[in-house]
Amino acid sequence: MLERLNFIENKYEELSIKISDPTIMANQKEWQKLCKEHSDMEEMVNKFREFKKAEEDLEADKEMLKDDLERELKEMVQEEIKELSVKREELEQELKILLLPKDPNDEKNVFIEIRAGAGGDEAALFAANLLRMYTRYAERHNWKVESVSANETDIGGFKEVVFMVRGDKVYSKLKYESGVHRVQRVPDTESSGRIHTSTATVAVLPEVEDVDVEINSNDLRIDVFRASGHGGQCVNTTDSAVRITHLPTGLVVSCQDEKSQLKNKEKAMKVLKSRLYDRLQAERSANIAEDRKSQVGTGDRSERIRTYNYPQGRVTEHRIGLTLYRLEAFLDGDIDEVLDALITAEQAEKMKNLGSEL
C-alpha cells in the first residue's frame, strides 16, 4: 500500500509542476485533463501526508520514552502515543478506501425510471410515492430534478415516470436504488382492511456523453405526436412530443415535458444513450447483469431489494439486512442512512477482494 501511495504522491508533485507550466497551459484541452487528474489525486495525497506525519510523531514519541523522563511527562507522552496510534489506524483505513477502484460514472448526473410493477393501481400510487421520495432527497442535496416523461393514472399514480437528477456526484449515491421496491400497506380502496403487497421497479442510469456511446442515425425511427394529459386529454395543440425507437435493440424513449419539439428530442436522445450505455455495461460485466432487464427484475412480488411496510412503519433493506423504523421520514427523502450503509458494505466487499493487494 505504501509503495502505491508513494508513487501517487510523486505523480501528484509532477502534475503540480506541469499544470503551472505556461507551455502546457497554452494547450487548454491538455491542461484541463492534467488539472482533473491532479484534482482527483489531491484528497488521497493530503491524507497520505497526514498519515506520514502521524507515523513520524508516533516514532518520535516512542524514542522519547526511551529517555529517563519525569513521571508526569512520561504519562503525557504515553497518552499521546495512544491517540496517535488510533489516528494512524483511522488514516490507514481511509487510505485503503481511497485506493479502491473508482466507478467512472460516480460523478455523473442520472436518469431515474420508475415503473409500476405487480399490484395495479396500488403499484402506480407507490411509484408516485417513490418519485416524491427521490425528489425530496434531491432537494435535501440541492440537486436539480427535471421531468422527462410520465404516464399518469386517473387517481394520481404513475404507470411509468422518467426524470433526470443533476448535481454533485449524483450517480455515486443513487446507483444503489436500481431494483424492485416492495410496499406492504392497506390501500385506500380496501374496505376490509386487508394488507396488499405491490411493487415498483427503479432503474438508475448515468447520463452519457457522446464519447461514451455512438448511435447511427439510420438505426433510429423518430415519431412526433401531441402531448396529452390525464386520461388522454390534449394539453398541446402542436406535435411537440417525441418518440424515438432504436431499431436494433427495440428500445423506445418518449419525451413530452417540453413545449419545444427540439428540446423533447434532445432529452429523449439523452435517455436513449443512457439506456444503451447501461445495456453495454451490463453485457460487459456478468457481475452486473446480462442486460438491462435483469437490473430491475420483472416486478414480481418475490423479487425485491427493499420493503416499505406501512403497518409497522419500517423500511427493510434486504441486500444488507438493515431495518429502520421511520418509514415516514424515509419516504420524505431522508434515505442517507441506508445509502451510506450500502456504500460501506460495497467498500468492505471491495477491500476483501483486494486484501492481498492492499
Rank of each mutant, 00 (worst) to 15 (best):
S260K: 07
Q295R: 14
S217K: 14
M1P: 04
R275G: 09
E50D: 12
N142P: 01
G193K: 11
A54N: 07
S16M: 11
A118L: 04
R182G: 02
P101L: 09
G250P: 04
K66I: 00
K259R: 15
I81F: 05
H230K: 08
I335Q: 03
K175R: 15
E146N: 11
E190M: 08
V148R: 01
K267N: 13
A116P: 05
F126W: 09
D332Q: 12
L205N: 02
I24L: 13
R166Q: 14
S149W: 03
V242H: 03
E92W: 08
R182T: 05
S274T: 02
I24V: 15
E290P: 00
L15V: 02
V161L: 06
Y12K: 08
E139R: 04
E283G: 01
G117T: 09
L262R: 13
M133I: 07
N129D: 15
R279N: 09
L5A: 06
E42A: 14
R304W: 01
T307I: 13
Q93Y: 06
K102R: 15
Y12R: 06
S85Q: 11
G117Y: 10
K159C: 02
L322Q: 10
L205W: 06
H230G: 01
D103N: 15
K96W: 12
E42V: 01
S85N: 07
V253K: 06
T249E: 14
S294P: 00
L262M: 10
D67G: 00
S217W: 07
R221L: 04
V148S: 01
R221H: 02
K36M: 11
K267V: 15
V161T: 14
S147M: 14
G313Q: 11
K144V: 13
D219N: 12
N46E: 13
Y308S: 08
R275T: 05
E50M: 07
L15M: 14
M351S: 06
K270D: 08
R304T: 01
R304N: 03
V148L: 14
V253D: 02
K18E: 09
I195T: 12
V145F: 02
A348G: 03
T23P: 00
N236R: 15
I335P: 00
V271Y: 13
T323S: 12
N353S: 08
I17H: 10
G250L: 15
R115K: 15
S191T: 09
F111D: 11
L84Q: 13
R182C: 03
L91I: 05
F48P: 00
I19W: 04
N236T: 10
D40H: 10
K270S: 14
E207Y: 12
I320D: 10
L358R: 11
